[in-house]
C-alpha cells in the first residue's frame, strides 16, 4: 500500500513536470530552440498568483487566470524582443540569449519582490480521500493536480489536432519553408506557441507551489531542468512524449527518494535518462531522424 501511495505522489509531481515539459517541447518542435527561460516564466507566474491570492485576496480561479494571462504576455514579449531577431542565428546564440533572459527574469524578480522566501497558500483545500479502510490516503491536491494535467493534455491534443491553428503549428514543425508557401504566417504561429506554452506554465506554477509552498526567484530553475529532461526523455518535439516523460520522471524521482536514497534521487533520475537515450537516442516517443547525404 505504501508503494501505491508513493506511485500516486510520483504521478502528481510528474503531472507538474509534464505541464512544464509541454511548454519546452512545443517551443522546440516549432522554433527548434531550447527555451531555458521557460522555468523562470513559470516562476513569474507563481509570483503573480501569489500576489493575486495573498495581497489582493482574489478568488482562486481569477488568480490562476490572471497568472496565466501574465505568463502568456511575458512569453510573447520575450519571444518578440529576444528570440525573434535571432530567427536565423546559430542555435548556440539562441541558447545563450535564452540564458540571458533567464538571468534577467530571476534578477528582475529578486529586485521587484526581494529574494526572501514567501509562503504560498495552497489553492486546494487540505484534506484527503481515504481508500481501503484508511490504509491509503490521497490528498485533494494530488487528485486535482493529476486531473488538471490530464485536462491540459486533452485540451492541447484537441487544439493541435482539430483546429486550423493547430494544423498550422504541425505544418510549421514539419517544414517551415513549405508552411510559408502554403500561406501560413510562421512568426504568428511561433508567437502563439510561446503564448500557449507560457500560459500553461502558470498552471504548473500554481500546482507546484501548492505542493511545495516556498516561493523564491530561483523557484523555476530546478523544475525547469527537470521538465527539460522530461521533454527529452519522452522525445523532444513530441507532445505525448512530454506527457509520458514528465509522468515517468516524477514517478522515478519519488520512488527513488522512497526506496533508495533521498540525496541520490537526482542522480538516479539523470542516470535513467542517460540509459533511455542510449537505447532510444531520440527519446521514448521521438521521431527517428533519417540522415541524408
Amino acid at each position: 500500500m505504501a508503494f501505491l501511495s508513493y506511485l500516486i505522489n510520483g504521478l502528481s509531481l510528474g503531472s507538474v513536470y509534464a505541464i512544464i515539459a509541454l511548454g519546452y517541447t512545443m517551443v522546440y518542435g516549432i522554433a527548434k530552440m531550447l527555451n531555458f527561460a521557460h522555468g523562470d516564466i513559470m516562476m513569474v507566474g507563481a509570483y503573480v498568483a501569489f500576489f493575486a491570492l495573498n495581497t489582493y485576496g482574489l478568488p482562486v480561479i481569477v488568480s490562476v487566470l490572471l497568472s496565466m494571462l501574465a505568463c502568456t504576455v511575458l512569453g510573447v514579449v520575450v519571444e518578440r524582443l529576444a528570440y525573434k531577431p535571432l530567427r536565423n542565428a546559430s542555435s548556440l546564440s539562441v541558447l545563450i540569449t535564452a540564458i540571458g533572459v533567464s538571468y534577467f527574469l530571476q534578477n528582475g524578480a529578486q529586485l521587484l519582490w526581494s529574494s526572501s522566501t514567501k509562503v504560498f497558500p495552497s489553492v486546494v483545500p487540505s484534506g484527503s480521500v481515504q481508500l481501503f479502510g484508511g490504509q491509503l490516503s490521497i490528498s485533494y491536491l494530488t487528485i486535482v493536480t493529476i486531473l488538471i494535467c490530464i485536462l491540459v493534455m486533452v485540451c492541447l491534443t484537441l487544439f493541435i489536432n482539430r483546429t486550423r491553428t493547430g494544423k498550422a503549428m504541425r505544418a510549421c514543425s514539419e517544414d517551415k519553408g513549405a508552411a510559408v508557401l502554403m500561406g501560413i504566417n510562421v512568426n504568428q504561429i511561433i508567437s502563439i506557441t510561446f503564448a500557449i506554452g507560457s500560459g500553461i506554465a502558470a498552471i504548473a506554477a500554481v500546482l507546484l507551489c501548492s505542493t511545495y509552498p516556498s516561493l523564491s526567484p530561483t523557484l523555476g530553475s530546478m523544475p525547469g531542468i527537470k521538465a527539460f529532461t522530461a521533454a527529452v526523455f519522452g522525445g523532444i518535439g513530441s507532445i505525448p512524449g512530454a506527457f509520458l516523460g514528465g509522468l515517468l520522471l516524477g514517478v522515478i524521482e519519488i520512488l527513488s527518494k522512497a526506496y533508495i536514497s533521498t540525496q541520490l534521487s537526482d542522480a538516479i533520475v539523470f542516470a535513467v535518462l542517460i540509459i533511455v537515450l542510449l537505447i532510444r537516442p531520440t527519446g521514448l516517443l521521438g521521431k527517428k531522424i533519417s540522415e541524408k547525404v
Binding site: Y28, L34, I225, L277
Partner: peptide, 25 residues
Amino acid sequence: LKLQGDYLAIVTLAFGEIIKSLVNN
C-alpha cells in the same frame, strides 16, 4: 558521443548533475 545534437547536450547536462550529486554525498 554516440548521440547527436541536443540529445548529446542534455546527456552532458545529466552527467554534470550526476557528478555534482555524487560528490555532494
